[in-house]
């Protein structure tokens, strides 16, 4: 207990901002005169800072029980007459852990893992990463087996990861949860980066896809609101956030 007037639970509720306005003002007034209570509050705030530094994000799965999971887009794909129009959403915190996991319409999927210290791929509940980390994608596809993976960041800079060379979509082996060749080393850029996967039934020109991404970004500079439509291609995306500090 901090002092006769306020107990630790009340002081913690003050730190969390859960007290009524009136009570908060009372506690604030009291704390200026009570070393014991101010000590409790200071300790709690230090504890919170240390905790968030150690664990800035929460995992979607227990540390000892990781398994293959998928990010679930916030908004679902909408099929329209001219093809699929993607409503892009940020990667969600809580992922679908039922059975085989999340399946998008049309049978294509893109999944993201980060390699932990031992090189083992793990899923992070929220796609927040740091420069220098390695990410690995897996995919699922059937008929739409030609593939381009590009990214666009907050500044509108576009990078093409697949195909590594050549000017057209690379062919993929149809299947589920197959790894793309090579992991991607995240560069020093701090900010948001939208990874866009374009699955098509026939090869597309990389330059055309890049041009489409560039136009879509110029129209809506908020990455999360980027709308991309390319013929009858199926498009999946993951918004990745890069921050300086990571657990």
């Amino acid at each position: 207990m901090a002092c006769e007037k306020y107990d630790k639970l009340t002081l913690l509720s003050y730190v969390t901002g859960d007290l009524s306005v009136e009570k908060r003002l009372e506690v604030e007034s009291h704390v200026t005169r009570c070393a014991s209570c101010s000590g409790v509050i200071k300790e709690a705030e230090e504890e919170r800072a240390a905790f968030l530094e150690a664990f800035p994000v929460i995992d979607a799965v227990p540390a000892r029980n990781r398994r293959l999971l998928r990010f679930t887009p916030v908004r679902t794909l909408l099929a329209v007459a001219a093809g699929l129009v993607l409503a892009v959403g940020a990667g969600s915190l809580l992922v679908d852990r039922s059975g085989d996991g999340y399946r998008t319409k049309g049978g294509v999927a893109l999944n993201l893992f980060v390699q932990d210290g031992s090189g083992e791929p793990v899923v992070r509940g929220e796609p927040v990463f740091s420069p220098g980390e390695r990410i690995q994608f897996t995919y699922s596809c059937g008929g739409e087996r030609y593939f381009i993976l590009a990214s666009v960041d907050d500044m509108g800079r576009i990078s093409v990861y697949y195909p590594a060379e050549g000017d057209r979509s690379m062919p993929l082996e149809p299947g589920r949860d197959l790894p793309l060749p090579n992991s991607i080393l995240l560069d020093e850029y701090i900010g948001n980066e939208l990874y866009i996967a374009v699955f098509s039934a026939r090869p597309l020109r990389v330059a055309r896809v890049v041009d489409k991404i560039e136009r879509a970004f110029r129209e809506r500079t908020d990455l999360r609101a980027t709308v991309l439509k390319i013929d009858d291609a199926k498009i999946r995306s993951i918004l990745l956030k890069k921050r300086e500090y990571q657990r």
Binding site: T16, A50, F51, D59, P62, R64
Partner: peptide, 25 residues
């Protein structure tokens, strides 16, 4: 807001960082 309070209780009882982290989740 609340993560540190949860973790604080768990680490005091469990004593192991990994277990406390799982329990926090």
């Amino acid at each position: 807001t609340y993560g540190f309070i949860i973790y604080g209780r768990c680490i005091r009882l469990l004593g192991c960082r990994d277990e406390a982290r799982d329990a926090t989740q």
